[in-house]
Design a protein around this nucleic acid. Structure first.
Lengths: 347, 347
DNA sequence: GTGAAAGCGCTAACAT
DNA sequence: ATGTTAGCGCTTTCAC
């Protein structure tokens, strides 16, 4: 099947290619009459412009890349929804790349997108990332980039985050208010900036309540459920086990609940749990899970909006865009006895 | 910053562009020595080939589109993982398009991708889709397309599905075995082929057990949680309410549980529930949810593999590829009293 | 084994 | 208001 090009349209219409091209892009220097004829013929022949020819010429692809660790994670799934909504609205296409928390993959992906394929990047770092040279290469290429959630430290880029420090502080305070004396902090990485923020909030809350902080009370998990389950099992079977858990990672909630089921540890009776999580099913778990819920959709939407704004202006003065959208704490029965009413705490 | 092109490499190396191009693609007609020199210079100048120039010339973009209703849904999130794994392995890029169950969006997306932007499509229909003309247009363009899960009826394309009929039959039989006399079937659409299959399985199981089937026992929900909740509330407050629910849609599980909590209806005591669902938290709900779990990752992976096979061969004899990967039923306490052991039923 | 030349389909200067 | 020309960066004959 012969593909219909501008050249063919031009021949059928006995016009030049440039006239047809201009007519199709509704240029003011083309007469209304000609525009109508061109559009009619284009419709008749089902003409569809070749995006790559156009991209090559214009050096812009109307495509952005979204580089994230996972898609099977409520936060990122909701963030993608926000991003895609804006992209569709602006007529942009969205390329998805998953790092699976793997630094080498992240490097390969970053390498793969710095060649004109995309006009801009939305990115959330992998938990393994500790070196940022591959990202500086993106800057050299003057590719607009907006980090969201897991931002890149020491780099002059736009960022969209939530108030991790305050959220973590508040969650820890909540656990203490509920009577916890020994709270363990669960993380998936030591290097992520958000982990650091959340950790600081946790530590400060401990300090402000005159509770001791032990480095051993930070449990660093991996991207491996079996491993995490055994780690948590070990934690909950040792002599002076914690009476409170603050998980900075959504997927660890599943591990915590699973292990507690196995060990017959009662939540919240013997162990109180708060988790940074956007799980839709948090209210339906047994017991309902107290969460710090991030504005995932809004964060995705905002990050995309900032990126498109930069793309439109053509300048890359993104550095000054650092948006912080607050999370909420949703208090449910994993921290308070059954019967205690649900409570929403703004942060 | 000056972008490094083949032309520049050629000048620096005092070679012709074609020689450089061939060297870069490891052509056998170039000497080892030259190849080394070219590669070294390319590395030194951080050369990255322009993908759109290449696509334009080769008429192939190393990019596929994934068109799905949602991403914030365990099934699709897991399927994307499978797809992305294969794509990354084959060096392909993945464009994501979300229809949000909206037919007009689906049409717009399909229109938008039939212009050479992509080499192939993986697709799952929106629940609103009842006309298929927009898809036939894709075939006309000879774009390889593989449907997964929500396939297109009456079209000669490759499909990857699960055994929906058998799964639904088995789930209904299970509810009957558990003592249910009046089972309501929940769906999100009347038009989807999978809904039809699941409905048939449900009806046949009723018939085989000499239970009557009432058309009113099919509850058609929407892509709107508030609406669904009120619909389910109505269902569960009417005089002769059902004692069993078979939901063919994952997200309805949340609605069912939420409403039952509000109405204080005991699961499984007063109502037994089975849901087609890939929720990770199904075992942790209150009570743990009996699910028909689809092989989402495998389905995505298989669909992608079939597509890449067709892409490689260049021919489009996809029609004969109709793969069916079986689901499993995971029996938990939403259908059986607490204490009954977990059970996995192959289908 | 290397090079010259053409062209993928489009757009943007620059005429007319 | 329309046409001519050149070229985006790459690959692919075809010649040497």
């Amino acid at each position: 099947m012969q593909t219909v090009t501008i050249k063919i349209l031009a021949e059928k219409l006995k016009l030049s290619r440039s006239t047809v091209s201009k007519a199709l892009s509704d240029s003011h220097e083309i007469s209304q009459d000609t525009k109508k004829r061109v559009l009619a013929m284009a419709a008749k022949l089902d003409y569809a412009p070749n995006p790559y020819a156009s991209s090559l010429r214009k050096k812009s692809s109307k495509t952005i890349a979204v580089v994230i660790p996972e898609v099977a994670d409520s936060f990122f799934a909701q963030a993608i929804n926000g991003i895609e909504a804006v992209a569709q609205d602006k007529g942009y296409h969205v390329l998805i790349y998953l790092t699976h928390e793997n630094f080498l993959r992240e490097k390969a992906i970053v390498k793969d997108i710095q060649n004109g394929r995309i006009d801009g990047v939305l990115m959330s770092l992998s938990s393994e990332t500790t070196s940022y040279a591959h990202l500086h290469a993106l800057f050299k290429k003057e590719l607009p980039i907006v980090f969201f959630d897991r931002v890149c430290p020491g780099i002059n880029a736009a960022t969209v985050t939530t108030n991790d420090y305050a959220a973590s502080y508040r969650a820890t305070q909540h656990l203490i208010d509920c009577g916890c004396k020994k709270i363990v902090f669960l993380a998936i990485s030591k290097s992520l900036l958000i982990t650091g923020e959340r950790l600081k909030g946790y530590q400060q809350a401990l300090a402000d309540n005159a509770l001791p902080f032990y480095p051993a009370d930070i449990l660093v998990c991996k991207n491996d459920t079996a491993y995490n389950n055994s780690l948590i099992t070990k934690l909950l079977t040792k002599p002076n086990r914690p009476d409170g858990l603050l998980s900075s990672v959504e997927k660890l909630a599943t591990s915590i609940y699973t292990v507690c089921n196995q060990l017959q540890i009662a939540i919240p009776g013997q162990l109180k749990v708060v988790c940074f999580s956007n799980l839709q099913t948090a209210p339906l778990l047994h017991p309902p899970l107290t969460t710090i819920t991030q504005p995932a959709f809004a964060m995705g939407k905002t990050a995309a909006t900032i990126l498109f704004k930069a793309l439109k202006k053509g300048t890359i003065d993104l550095p000054n865009n650092t948006v912080v959208i607050p999370s909420v704490m949703l208090v449910r029965n994993s921290t308070s006895a059954i019967g205690t009413p649900f409570m929403e705490v703004q942060l």
